[in-house]
Amino acid sequence: MQNAVELKNVSCVFGTVHAVDHISLEVLAGEFFSLLGPSGSGKTTCLRLIAGFERPSSGSIVLLGKDAASLPPYAREVNTVFQDYALFPHMSVLDNVAYALMVRGIGRLERHRRALELLEMVKLRGMEKRRPAELSGGQRQRVALARALVNKPRILLLDEPLGALDLKLREEMQIELKSLQRQLGITFVYVTHDQSEALSMSDRVAVFNRGRIEQLDSPKKLYEYPETEFVARFVGSANVLAGKELGLDGGKFAIRPERIRIEPGRISGTNSLVGRLIDVHFLGSQTRYEVTLVNNSTIRMTVVAPAGGEAGLEAGSEVTLTWNPGSLRKLREGEA
């Protein structure tokens, strides 16, 4: 199958800042692909390069098999849902959604019919006469979505579309977006800084850091097999230890908090460390323990265990941490 998006060795330099630094990635047709990273990591610039709002300093951009690096935004078969929605305040909801059809010269009746279809799809029928200022945040988000989909793009770019919504609405919209993407069968390229959002929705995720891709994998692989310290810490949480602390060869290792067993007292054995419990946080279904190692108190470990096993585990007491050696992940050397 043809790739929806291909970036080859793309760089984007603003002044002396490499916002995007030699990035290559391929997005498959029909895929839900996320660009995940902290702010300033280059993920939004990467999206803007695909949309055509930025020109690459070097490298090639191929959209649906066509070279697009020099095409202006209006000549690309992609549409964008903006972070601030970018609705036109002087137009009704209906005219906003019909805008792409209007500028293509499609007649009023036809474009209103199509726009109403889209409004139906995003459950906003009856709102078509309102102005964007008269809608709630969630409704504006749906208008932005309908407006971007009215042209039947084969690739939809979403720039932190749920960032401005409250938590409950965000979770609802995550489910809706995902099912919409399945139903339409089009490619979604989704920018987010929220790792749980990226993990729950995506087929594949590219983790960005300092203008580069640290790792590109399925959510499960990213979580189970982080390749760098940055990914281990940014996707979920992780304990990262130098090999010598564990009696292993050099390099660094990561282990997820829920893969460590915590027991009261000092128990000797392999694949274990003795520490001092400094804090216990009850989180409802789980309990989180903060531990410093006895032979190196600068190292802090976090352990998460199902609630109910707190007996004998009090702040200040000595504890033993054990794990299955298969849960340790050796990390690639690189900047953190």
Partner: peptide, 21 residues
């Protein structure tokens, strides 16, 4: 907000249409 202009271009309007609409 400048993203309005970008949105217009993204939806297929050229510079002149973006200015007008």
């Amino acid at each position: 907000s400048y993203s309005q202009i970008e949105a217009s271009m993204d939806l297929g309007a050229d510079a002149l249409q973006t200015f007008r609409y």
